[in-house]
Amino acid sequence: MNQYVIIAIDGTDSQALERRMAARPSHIAGTRDLKANNHFILGGAILDESGKMTGSVMIVQFEDEAALQNWYLNEPYIQQNVWHSIEIKPFRVADV
């Protein structure tokens, strides 16, 4: 499986947190599906100094780029315009 790190930063407009919270149940449900299918390795929210969620980091794995792209196109935080800046990089979890 190919592994990827996703670093995604939310929008900074006044409705950004509201959009995140509205999309969050679908995002969490999708992440649970990823985990059940051995595609989710690790993830969580990026926080600002006050503890407010401002982005996400995920480490995922897929058989190929097409499967990654399928996930990407169906990710609620992308569909609902939560994430504004998204970096996806090939990654390898250390085997220690």
Score class of each variant (00 low, 15 high):
1 M>P: 00
1 M>D: 04
3 Q>V: 10
3 Q>D: 08
4 Y>G: 04
4 Y>W: 09
5 V>P: 00
5 V>H: 10
6 I>Q: 00
7 I>V: 06
7 I>L: 08
7 I>R: 02
11 G>P: 15
11 G>M: 02
12 T>K: 10
12 T>C: 06
12 T>Y: 10
13 D>V: 13
14 S>V: 04
15 Q>E: 10
15 Q>C: 08
17 L>A: 08
19 R>D: 02
19 R>N: 00
20 R>I: 04
21 M>I: 09
22 A>Y: 07
23 A>N: 09
24 R>E: 11
26 S>C: 02
26 S>F: 09
26 S>M: 05
27 H>L: 03
28 I>Y: 15
28 I>L: 15
29 A>S: 14
31 T>Q: 07
31 T>C: 09
31 T>W: 03
33 D>E: 13
34 L>C: 12
34 L>H: 11
35 K>M: 05
35 K>Y: 06
35 K>V: 03
36 A>D: 06
36 A>W: 05
36 A>C: 01
36 A>I: 01
36 A>L: 08
37 N>S: 08
37 N>V: 03
37 N>H: 11
38 N>W: 14
39 H>Q: 10
39 H>N: 08
41 I>V: 14
41 I>E: 08
42 L>G: 13
42 L>E: 15
42 L>F: 15
43 G>M: 09
43 G>Q: 08
44 G>D: 07
44 G>K: 10
45 A>S: 08
46 I>D: 04
46 I>R: 05
47 L>G: 03
48 D>F: 11
49 E>Q: 04
50 S>R: 14
50 S>L: 12
53 M>T: 12
54 T>H: 13
54 T>N: 07
56 S>M: 07
58 M>W: 12
59 I>P: 14
60 V>H: 03
62 F>W: 11
62 F>H: 07
62 F>P: 11
62 F>Y: 12
64 D>Q: 07
64 D>S: 09
65 E>P: 03
65 E>A: 08
66 A>Y: 00
67 A>N: 01
68 L>S: 12
69 Q>I: 03
69 Q>Y: 01
69 Q>C: 02
70 N>I: 11
71 W>G: 02
71 W>D: 03
71 W>P: 00
72 Y>W: 14
72 Y>A: 03
72 Y>I: 09
72 Y>S: 05
73 L>K: 06
74 N>Y: 13
76 P>I: 02
77 Y>V: 01
78 I>Y: 12
78 I>P: 03
78 I>C: 06
80 Q>A: 10
82 V>Y: 04
84 H>L: 11
84 H>Q: 14
84 H>S: 15
84 H>G: 15
85 S>W: 12
85 S>H: 12
87 E>L: 12
88 I>H: 12
90 P>E: 00
90 P>I: 03
91 F>P: 10
91 F>I: 00
93 V>H: 06
93 V>W: 05
95 D>T: 11
95 D>Q: 08
96 V>L: 14
